[in-house]
Each structure stands twice: as structure tokens, then as C-alpha cells.
């Protein structure tokens, strides 16, 4: 049995008196992948940001000591015209050109001409890879992803998830992933947390992803077929 990397106990987050997350408790073991499922407005992003220390909270969040957390945000780059190229973006962290090339290679970008490309000129799929590479620079123990495929077409979605699985195997790290995409869960998750302010269900995907749980989570009839992988 591997070590606990994150312990969340009785976590509540309030905005203007409204509870966005209500009395949530869960553990995460090292090298386990947790997928957080839930409808819009269920508090998924809030949970991720609270884990990162962005929002104030009540209750307990205990990360393993000296843990290095990598984060891939959902919203990035309000100003598409910013004169900032990829090499400069990477050099916000202490890193040299060879190291940049190496980390880019690990997310499937081998073409060095991307160094001098403006960050606003990238496609959403390329930008997502760049952000993943940027998060990987410090060799994090855990990666937090907020809907990594939002705004990417279905083909690109597929490759991003393949990339995540590949990175996870190569680097042997823990991943927390928010997604809407139920098909990803079976491929990827060791455990699932269904969130709608409270934990509606949690546990391994085969156990948890039953129709009644999903109906409760999404609040209605849902068409869902278990994949036979």
C-alpha cells in the first residue's frame, strides 16, 4: 500500500455565505489518479483551487511534506497579442534552452521553431501541451488539471488524454483531473470523486460509476454505456 499524499477532512468553502463545497473528505494515495466528476457549478474548479491555496476554507487540507505541485489552469491568456514567446515563457522559471527542448519533447513537441513563436499564436491544443510542459519543469510529485480538453476538438482531446497517460507512466506521478468526459474515467482513473457541493460518490470507477449515482450527480436521466476496455 502506498503512502497518502493528500488528506482532505471536513472541507467547506464559502463565497458570500453560500457553501460551494460542503463538508468534503477524501484521501489520495501516491501514484493514484483521481478524477473529479460533476455538473457545472458543482464546485470542481473551486475544489482544485482550494487545494492549491487560492481560496480560503474551513476544515483540513494536508499535503505530504515538501510536496511539489504542478498545475495546469483552465483559463489562461486573456490578451492574445502579448509579445511573449515560448522560450521567454519557459524562462519565467529557472531553465536553460536544452532543458526546455527536453521537456517539450516529453509532451510531443519536437519542432524547435516553436521557441520563437508568440504564445498567443498557438492553437488551443498546442497551448495545452505547453502548459503541461511548463508544469512538468520542476518535476512535480502531483499534477492538477482543470478540464485539460476544454476548447479542444475531439481529436485533440484524445491525444491530450493519451499524452497524460504517457506522462503519468513515464514520470510515475499522481494526477488529479477534472473532466466532463465519462469515457476518460475508465481509461485513466484509479479513483473517482463525484462532486456536487458534497461528495455524491467516491471510490474506484467500476464500483462508483453506477447509473443511480450518476443520476443523482447530474440530477436526471443520463445515457451512459460502460466501456468494455
Amino acid at each position: 500500500m502506498s503512502d497518502i499524499i493528500l488528506e482532505v477532512k471536513n472541507l467547506s468553502v464559502r463565497f458570500d455565505g453560500n457553501k460551494v463545497i460542503d463538508d468534503l473528505s477524501f484521501d489520495l494515495r501516491e501514484k493514484d489518479n483521481l478524477v473529479i466528476l460533476g455538473p457545472n457549478g458543482a464546485g470542481k474548479t473551486v475544489l482544485l483551487k482550494t487545494l492549491l491555496g487560492i481560496f480560503p476554507f474551513q476544515g483540513n487540507i494536508r499535503w505530504r511534506e515538501n510536496i511539489k505541485i504542478g498545475y495546469v489552469p483552465q483559463k489562461f491568456l486573456a490578451d492574445k497579442n502579448i509579445p511573449l514567446n515560448i522560450e521567454e515563457f519557459f524562462k519565467f522559471k529557472k531553465i536553460n534552452s536544452e532543458e526546455i527542448a527536453a521537456v517539450l519533447k516529453s509532451v510531443g513537441i519536437k519542432d524547435k521553431t516553436i521557441f520563437s513563436k508568440r504564445i498567443g499564436a498557438l492553437s488551443s491544443g498546442q497551448l495545452q501541451r505547453i502548459l503541461i510542459a511548463w508544469a512538468l519543469i520542476d518535476n512535480p510529485d502531483i499534477l492538477l488539471f482543470d478540464e485539460p480538453t476544454a476548447g479542444i476538438d475531439i481529436e485533440g482531446e484524445e491525444t491530450i488524454y493519451n499524452l497524460l497517460s504517457q506522462i503519468e507512466k513515464e514520470r510515475d506521478l499522481t494526477i488529479i483531473l477534472i473532466t466532463h468526459d465519462l469515457s476518460v474515467v475508465y481509461k485513466f482513473a484509479d479513483s473517482v470523486l463525484c462532486l456536487n457541493k458534497k461528495a455524491v460518490c467516491q471510490g474506484p470507477p467500476q464500483e462508483v460509476l453506477k447509473l443511480e449515482n450518476l443520476n443523482q450527480l447530474y440530477g436526471g436521466e443520463i445515457k451512459f454505456y460502460q466501456h468494455g476496455h
Binding site: K49, L52, G53, I54, Y71, A78, I82
Partner: peptide, 16 residues
Amino acid sequence: YKKIILASLSEDLAIS
């Protein structure tokens, strides 16, 4: 400079 630019790209990324 770099810190403020990063925060303007994504406050969450800067804080994390």
C-alpha cells in the same frame, strides 16, 4: 516584471 506578467496570464498559475 516576470511575476506580474505571469499573474496577468493566469493569477491562479502565479499563486500556485
